[in-house]
Design a protein around this nucleic acid. Structure first.
Lengths: 242, 242
DNA sequence: CGAACAATTGAACCGATTCAAGATGCGTGG
DNA sequence: CCACGCATCTTGAATCGGTTCAATTGTTCG
């Protein structure tokens, strides 16, 4: 049912041509041999189909991943079997960082639609970062950002605020990656948005309807356009990046 | 109103005698000169009184902090002025890590009761960790743990599950630090517990009553004893460390 | 086309909040 | 030591946001 992790398809670590690390979350500003060293621990792989798994919760941690195209979601499952989507990962973003401590992936990573990624050997990355202070610096920064962001999600908000905040944050991330911030595709199904924001799919549906009625957005299936960004930001409050 | 940060009271970095770093979250296993280097960037300070501030949100980030005694809470304030307690910090635990990325503290740190701490110069710690791979390793681990923990808090739980999970996690942390896991003081007021768990103080009160009635705990003001740990864990589900 | 799944809409329900009142604990000063 | 006042905590009743359940519409794909 699920494709195995990337390495099984690439016997040795390949240079990852399409995956310009400068555009990733690791703008280390390296050159010459350093860049080659870094590229040597990066492994590109063939694309994943819809709902295909990159790794499963519980699996031994060895790599972190950078999204090249498409979108991935990370999902945790609690003791009662309820699953929860901890995040959606856009091109240029990293995931798998939460596994460093426990040495096992705590979540499963799943592709949404057709997506591709780079695998980065964590062990190599860590030891490489001993040699490259700026890489270490970037790594720590990145982790810190993750901490901060997931903490700011823990505040208590109405369903309306959560959804508005989610859309604003998504827009900001798309913008940061060079895409349009006002028009993008909601690759994930409503059910996944609802799950991620801890609400019923019905609520998401009702809210989208309200947002459209109030002239904040237009939606056509998965094609979303933000009409009134200001109002949306106001509604979301601090839920997004502020 | 609020005492300024530690450095103003200690002109140069002092060795922090009482603060055995081995018992902190940084069990680096150093010896000789390395340990001296580490101690040189650690700064001990005089105790904080109840509700005294260590730093304020927005202040420039320069140090991370390790709790020596008592308890601290970290609080973020959203754009609407609502505050939210992101965490309580027990002896041996670190806080301030979320500020690395933004170079500003995103939260304010406040003492609960009389508490004391060690300040650690982050800049120095980072450059020291270039020399000490195991220190770097510990730092990354620690951050990863933070990410994982705050993500697992984002799952949707009933008030009952949240409170049960909170108590179990607290018990586990006390145990890890060498204190009793079944009996401890709830240093923070009910209001703070409620705030942290995103519920009304009234709900906390009603739940404590129910827990006592059901024979899970006994409480006397701030003095809490867990009677039926198993049942409590079952109730909390995955909310705690599992 | 028709089956299977996703999304929407409406109505009843429930957990938790809010509001208001009362109880308890705690420090201060008489 | 007790009385007072303030703050925290507790308890009860009404209310509300969001969920749940059920039925309908819409979409995708063999």
């Amino acid at each position: 049912m699920s494709k195995q992790i990337a390495s099984s398809r690439s016997p040795s670590f390949l240079k990852c041509g399409q995956c310009s690390l400068g555009s990733l979350c690791l703008p280390v500003g390296l050159d010459g041999q350093d860049m080659v060293d870094l590229e040597n621990i990066v492994d590109s792989s063939s694309p994943f189909g819809n709902e295909e798994r990159v790794y499963n919760a519980g699996q031994t941690f060895d790599r972190i991943y950078a999204v090249k195209s498409g979108m991935f979601k990370t999902v945790i499952i609690d003791s009662l079997g309820n699953d929860h989507i901890t995040g959606f990962h856009l091109p240029g973003e990293l995931f798998g960082l939460d596994a460093i401590y426990s040495k096992k992936y705590m979540s499963s990573a799943v592709s949404l639609g057709t997506s591709s990624l780079c695998a980065i050997e964590y062990k190599e990355l860590e030891s490489l970062s001993h040699k490259l202070p700026s890489l270490q610096h970037q790594l720590l920064n990145l982790m810190s950002k993750e901490v901060q962001q997931s903490q700011s999600l823990n505040v208590d908000l109405t369903a309306e605020q959560k959804l508005a905040g989610f859309l604003i944050a998504l827009a900001a991330r798309y913008k940061q990656r060079g895409y349009s911030e006002t028009r993008f595709h909601l690759v994930m199904p409503r059910r996944d948005i609802a799950n991620h924001l801890n609400m019923a799919p019905e609520t998401v549906s009702r809210l989208f309807k309200r947002f459209v009625n109030d002239g904040l957005l237009t939606i056509n299936r998965t094609d979303l356009t933000i009409v009134d960004m200001t109002a949306l930001k106001e509604m979301g409050g601090c839920a997004s990046v502020c």
